[in-house]
């Protein structure tokens, strides 16, 4: 009997059966029929020893080749069947992906906090550190130490809320600016110092879309030997560039604050109209951003610093207005209402 013919027949039969297999069980059955312990090919391989030597080698080689071919056939058929099964499963499992996803809750920082943090971050990156002070102040810290004597009209500019309970010898009040923090810090620390003091301030003025009796300021103070007005200009210009982008025009113009001399106001080119003039900038093309100046020698004297040895600059920045420009908020009262419709936007 010619074993090679047997092998050829076996191969044709197997190929036909495999191609007709429907699932992995069919494949397994065919495999057992051929390669199992009692399988047809196994039989042939087992009976090789009964063949004459000259045929043994040839048949043996062919049988082994066939076994490999068959195994490859099984593998690829199994893969084919698996793929079919999976693609059927995938078709069946198709969902409407447009249905709403899981509503994770997202918290939100208050837009004022975000603005404060952003500004503080800029100043911290150039060596300023944060300081704080109380909201209820004495006249000394809010006025006298800042070179604003009693009955000075500058006190009127900042309509003050006074507390019913006075301190020992003076009135207590809600701070009208963050500048008293300058005094607290300088009383405790020696130069050199660079601080920023973010915080809320109070003005006794009627509330409307652009005025709030409570608002946020950020105070800055740098005192050291050899600090100049040029350093003040440079530091604040750097801040404006980092906050608004470097193409915003900046101008410094004279102003007056009792606690700085020389004093200045910093304007930026109107971010709404780009300096052409609009009703936000009252057609001037400029927006007033902050007040600043060189620390007044009387202030340095009030905290027992030697004004001959030390100079410094200070600035005060209104956060609410800045935040309103940044986010396009048109009513300052929204900040303090805490409506989630508002808070969830930022």
């Amino acid at each position: 009997m010619d074993k090679t013919i047997d092998l050829e027949q076996l191969k044709q039969k197997a190929q036909q059966e495999i191609s007709q297999a429907k699932n992995s069980q069919d494949i397994e059955n065919i495999r057992i029929g051929l390669l199992g312990r009692k399988g047809a090919l196994t039989d042939i391989l087992r009976s090789l020893s009964q063949l004459p030597i000259d045929q043994r080698k040839e048949v043996g080689q062919k049988a082994n080749t066939l076994r490999k071919e068959l195994e490859e056939l099984f593998d690829s058929k199994i893969k084919e069947i698996d793929n079919l099964v999976i693609s059927e499963k995938l078709v069946k499992e198709k969902i409407d992906i447009s249905l709403p996803s899981y509503p994770f809750e997202t918290g939100h920082y208050h837009p004022l906090r975000q603005t404060l943090d952003e500004i503080a971050g800029i100043f911290e990156s150039i060596g300023f550190s944060k300081a704080e002070g109380p909201e209820i102040e004495t006249e000394w810290y809010n006025f006298e130490a800042l070179n604003i004597p009693k009955n000075h009209p500058a006190r009127d500019v900042q309509d003050t809320f006074y507390m019913k309970k006075p301190a020992k010898n003076e009135k207590r009040l809600l701070r009208t600016h963050t500048s008293p923090v300058q005094i607290h810090v300088m009383e405790k620390q020696k130069p050199p110092l660079r601080i920023i003091a973010p915080g809320r301030v109070f003005r006794n003025e009627a509330t409307d879309a652009s005025h709030s009796a409570v608002f946020y300021q950020l105070e800055g103070l740098a005192v050291d030997e050899k600090i100049t007005f040029a350093d003040l200009k440079g530091t604040l210009t750097l801040f404006i560039n980092r906050f608004f982008g470097k193409n915003v025009g900046v101008r410094f113009r004279p102003s007056h604050y009792q606690f700085t001399e020389p004093s200045a106001d910093l304007d930026i080119q109107c971010t709404i109209c780009g300096g052409k003039g609009c009703n936000i900038c009252k057609n001037t093309g400029w927006l007033e951003m902050l007040g600043c100046g060189m620390v007044h020698p009387n202030v340095l004297r009030a905290v027992k610093y030697d004004p001959e040895k030390y100079t410094g600059y200070a600035f005060g920045l209104g956060i609410d207005r800045l935040c309103m420009f940044k986010y396009g908020i048109d009513d300052i009262r929204l900040f303090y209402e805490n409506n989630l419709q508002f808070l969830e936007q930022f």
Binding site: I126, A230, D231, G234, P262
Partner: peptide, 24 residues
């Protein structure tokens, strides 16, 4: 003295004063 220096700065021109940043 500081008051006089402010006068010097104003008439000289705030815009002509250079802008420098102190190294940290």
């Amino acid at each position: 003295e500081a008051d006089l220096i402010e006068e010097v700065a104003r008439i000289y021109g705030y815009d002509k004063i250079p802008a420098t940043v102190l190294p940290l």
